[in-house]
Design a protein around this nucleic acid. Structure first.
Lengths: 215, 215
DNA sequence: GAATGTAGAATTGTGCAACAATCAGCGGAC
DNA sequence: GTCCGCTGATTGTTGCACAATTCTACATTC
């Protein structure tokens, strides 16, 4: 028998958490929105206990905040928290890139180049939804980390990326399409040319742009 | 008024999770032990829901594993998972050290030196419990990360450190006291002399020693 | 009028009991 | 020996109840 699927059953709590996560990460429920238990439990037709379990799950992922007796709300980050998030992201992504390059003889796998091409192509289209570009962008970065071949690193990075996405939802795009394209073409070239430090520079640029947009 | 305490109330779930966490991380409940709901709920005098919430919390921290309809058990890592854990740890800790050095003019703060001195002193004592050395060791590494001054980085690192500790509980010490001392004296000197790459080497040595002990 | 205090509503935290869904072990049929 | 179904144990989910806490609006005091 060939490699079977992980085959993990979906419990109601997981399913519910999945739906809520999707809504939150797509901006349907804006950051800071209070999540009332009876209201949501009724809306989704589940018991309050089940809903609470789902909220706790999402709180563990960082996209929901729970305060005792004050309820849950969609997480929102202040500037300092965002800075911390960027620091951890940099740590994971730079190390991921380092491992990826070390394990592939200084090159990045085909998937990363394909992702870059897809992103570049999108930025050249006359009319393209920003969300499409954002998704391709996120995919490129995740692909670089994935190239390290570490499931655990992937999982941690995905968690952070979700949190980051939640925050960036509130923000207007900070880069033009052209700048998005050139920056990432330089990134991939820089990674294969000079190594993982190119990624650090890239991320620092991005962070600076985001913080500048906050003022 | 000066900076007030965070003042966070303890809910029963948090309290319970704290007790369970302590027991697990101290090896009172060995890795792999099944955690039955009715049994534990009865033992701690809480409702099954409360216990389940606590278990979910610990599952989010990675020290408990939950499989649908099969229950919770104290987490246990196989070799591959341990390798992944080390990769993420290296990512966070090296980046933490990098930030710490960059933000302190290439030096490490007094606390780190004090932690090193405490660890060195312990390793010179005639009779010392290994757990004492292990705690001082963990404190030194956490202190290096903390020197970066990033709460978020600290939190993520603490989470990983707990998981790692859970695993290492099953292992006999891989280093002699003397090697523990010299390795960490070299580490601190190396960090201030050549920079964060010294930490990467240090961690790679440690990982190699752990994996060697597994065979 | 602003600060303070207070009653009631709204919301969350926890418990109890029940039942459905699933799993684990065991003995019988072939 | 392997497969099958049975049965008890365990988890998943629900509903209701009530305590604890927070929130809101209003009244009181200075």
């Amino acid at each position: 028998m060939s490699a079977v699927q992980p085959l993990r059953r979906q419990t109601v709590v997981d399913e519910l958490a999945g739906v809520l996560r999707t809504e939150i990460l797509n901006g349907v429920v804006p950051a800071g929105t209070p999540l009332r238990e009876v209201e949501l439990a009724g809306a989704y037709g589940v018991s309050r206990h089940t809903l609470r379990a789902a909220l706790r799950l999402l709180a563990g992922e960082g996209i929901v905040e729970i305060e005792p007796h004050r309820g849950a709300r969609v997480a929102s980050l202040d500037r300092a928290q965002l800075a911390g998030l960027f620091e951890v992201r940099t740590a994971l992504e730079v190390e991921g890139a380092r491992l990826a390059l070390a394990r592939n003889g200084g090159r990045l796998p085909a998937r990363v180049h394909a992702d870059l091409a897809a992103l570049a192509a999108a930025t050249r289209r006359a009319r393209v939804a920003w969300s499409t570009v954002a998704d391709l962008h996120a995919r490129l970065h995740a692909g670089i980390v994935a190239a390290a071949g570490s499931d655990r690193l992937d999982a941690e990075y995905a968690r952070l990326a979700a949190e980051l996405r939640l925050f960036l939802l509130q923000l207007r795009p900070v880069w033009t399409l052209e700048r998005m394209r050139t920056h990432h073409e330089e990134l991939v070239a820089g990674l294969e040319g000079e190594g993982p430090e190119a990624l650090r520079r890239h991320l620092e640029d991005g962070a600076a742009a985001v913080f500048a947009a906050l003022d």
